[in-house]
Simulated assay, not measured.
Amino acid sequence: MKTGLMGTQDITALNNVNITLYQKEILGLVGASGSGKSTLARVLVLLYRPSTGKVVFEGRDVTNYRGMKLREYRSDVQMVFQDPYASLDPYHTISWHIRRPLRIHHYRGNIDERIDELLEMVKLDPPSYFRDKFPHQISGGQRQRVYLARALALEPKVLIADEPVSMLDVSLRIDILELLSRIREDLGISIIYITHDLNTVSMITDRIYVLHNGEIVEEGQTDDVLSNPRDDYTRSLIEAAPDPYKRI
Rank of each mutant, 00 (worst) to 15 (best):
L177E: 15
E120G: 04
S35P: 00
L198T: 05
Y107F: 15
D243G: 04
Y73P: 15
H196R: 03
R42H: 12
S190A: 15
D169R: 08
V17C: 03
G53N: 12
Y73V: 05
M79L: 09
D197P: 02
N16L: 06
G141W: 06
Y147N: 12
L180Q: 14
L27Y: 04
K246H: 06
T12F: 15
K133T: 09
H92V: 04
L152H: 14
V165R: 08
E155I: 00
L226D: 11
N110F: 01
V146M: 03
G109V: 03
L154Y: 09
V17G: 01
Q9D: 10
N15K: 10
M167Y: 04
R145C: 05
Y193K: 13
I176A: 09
V45E: 10
I176M: 05
L40A: 07
Q23I: 08
I111T: 12
A86N: 12
L47Y: 14
I191M: 12
R66H: 04
S87V: 03
V62F: 02
I189Y: 15
N110Q: 08
H196D: 02
I183G: 04
M68N: 07
D83R: 08
K157V: 00
D132S: 10
Y129T: 01
Y48C: 00
N199L: 00
L172H: 13
G67M: 05
G188Y: 07
M121G: 02
V225N: 13
K24F: 00
N16M: 06
R230H: 15
G188K: 08
I208R: 14
Y233M: 15
T222Q: 10
Q142T: 09
D243V: 00
H212T: 04
R235K: 15
V45S: 07
M6Y: 13
R143L: 07
T205S: 15
A151R: 14
E163G: 03
E58N: 13
Q78F: 04
Q82P: 12
A32G: 04
G214A: 10
Q137A: 11
P164C: 09
D83Y: 01
Y22M: 06
I183H: 12
T12S: 05
R114E: 09
L148I: 14
F57Y: 15
Y107L: 05
Y245G: 05
F57I: 05
P127A: 12
M203G: 01
Q221C: 05
V80H: 11
D169H: 07
D83A: 00
V165C: 10
V55I: 08
G67Q: 06
A32Y: 03
P101A: 09
L154V: 01
I176V: 12
F57E: 14
V55P: 03
K2P: 02
D224E: 14
I238M: 09
R114I: 03
L44R: 13
L172V: 15
T205L: 07
L154W: 08
G220C: 05
D76S: 09
K54G: 02
P127N: 08
